[in-house]
Amino acid sequence: MTNKDKTYELIVKRLTNEISEEENALLDEQFAQKKFSKSKFEKLSVYWRMFFPKPVKHSIIEKTEKKLGFTYQAGAKTNSWNWLKIAASILLIVSVGYSLYTFVKPNDQLVLNEYCCENGEQKEIVLSDGTSIWLNSESRIIASEPFLGNTREVILYGEAYFEVAHNPEKPFIVKTSNLQTKVLGTKFNITSSGPHIPQEISLYEGSVELTADNASHNKVIMHPGETAIFSPDNGEIAVTRKDLGKPAQWRDGILHFDNEDLFSITRKLERKYNTKIFVTDPAVGRLRYTAEFQHESVDSIMRILCEAKEFHYENASGGIIIKAKN
């Protein structure tokens, strides 16, 4: 086993909560010696918690290996054997069902790319297949390029607008927490901010197939002009028709709400204005609004919202607190 492989093994053990104190100290030492970037590990941890919010037993890696058809002969100690173990673990971490062929074919120059936006930043990226993606503030995309096999798969954390290059032979799949969005070539927007927060998918062109928890019985086909809300609490997908306006208006600094509840609105305000907003009363959070803002400050928006439907808000050191009006 090479030193690099050993580092990967320690990372997998820490992520799966199966690392000993000695191994834990060794990994920290490798971070200190810059044998592996601590910041990269922290980003990796974010994605791990996103897809596996609860501790995962090491046996899940073995199950992944069997599913991929990895076979080992008793007593094998070659670097190839160890590399397959590491490949299976990394596959599990990034959660993008690539085949064994993808990992081991030497001439493919496969690269795992991470595209990210910091607070207040927006960015357009173009993937190797020609798909254009606009990332919103505090959002990330992971893509293994070039796309090999029968699908084009990426992972999203945050919000992004996609204009997918049409390829009927190779569907484009966006993986978010407990949800898979599958398209051939279309324009749509996804908001996915964590495993416990509802996800929103708005479709502007083409069609989209949503599958919750990888269960074929919980599958929904979307059509243009529809918005789907995926609830992580019950795994249900609710689809409604609404005025979507111009595709991904947030790219132009516009906040567009069409019969949207205050819980959803505050999440969008948090991203745009880089602040925290706490809704202390569930009844207030369910208040619905139809509105559009562009140049207003967050304080101006809060004043307008609380005048339209009665609630109270106050600015605090940690952000904005929204309460029911006494």
Rank of each mutant, 00 (worst) to 15 (best):
L110D: 13
L148N: 09
Q109P: 09
K246R: 14
I60V: 14
N326C: 00
I11Q: 09
T71Q: 14
N136I: 08
L184K: 05
H196Q: 05
K57I: 09
K105F: 15
L44N: 13
S192L: 05
S216C: 01
G318A: 03
T78G: 15
L210V: 07
Y8A: 13
R14I: 08
T2G: 06
K63Q: 12
L112W: 15
F230K: 08
S132R: 13
L26D: 09
S300T: 13
I265A: 02
V111T: 15
K325N: 07
V126E: 09
E153R: 02
T186I: 06
N107G: 04
K43T: 12
K4F: 11
N107D: 07
G130W: 01
V56Y: 15
K325R: 05
D213V: 09
F36L: 11
A238W: 02
D258H: 08
I60K: 14
E163T: 03
T240A: 05
T290A: 11
A248T: 04
A74F: 11
I86V: 14
N167W: 01
K170Q: 12
Q122A: 14
E23M: 10
T176Q: 05
C116G: 02
N234Y: 03
L135M: 10
D28F: 08
A324V: 08
D28V: 01
I237P: 10
T266M: 03
Y115G: 08
T64D: 09
D129E: 01
E65W: 12
R303E: 15
N218W: 04
S89E: 09
A212S: 15
D258G: 00
W250V: 05
F70H: 08
D129H: 02
K105P: 03
K40S: 09
V154W: 07
S89F: 07
E29Y: 05
F51P: 02
L148D: 10
K272W: 13
S89W: 03
E9M: 14
E42P: 03
L179A: 02
R288G: 00
W250A: 06
A88Y: 06
D281K: 03
R14S: 15
T176Y: 01
Q73G: 12
K66L: 07
Y115D: 00
K54N: 13
T290W: 06
G69P: 11
V298Q: 13
F36R: 00
P106Y: 14
L68I: 06
L92Y: 11
K272N: 12
D28M: 07
R288C: 06
I301F: 07
Y101D: 14
I197C: 02
M1R: 02
F162N: 04
I86M: 06
R14D: 05
E169F: 08
A212T: 12
N234H: 07
S144K: 15
E209R: 06
A215F: 07
A32P: 03
I142D: 10
Q199L: 13
A316S: 02
V12D: 03
S207V: 01
S132V: 01
I201Q: 02
N178Y: 15
A165N: 02
S139Y: 15
Y101N: 11
L262D: 00
V94T: 04
A291I: 04
E310L: 07
F263K: 00
Y101H: 15
E159A: 09
S20Y: 11
N189E: 10
A32E: 15
R271Y: 06
F36Y: 13
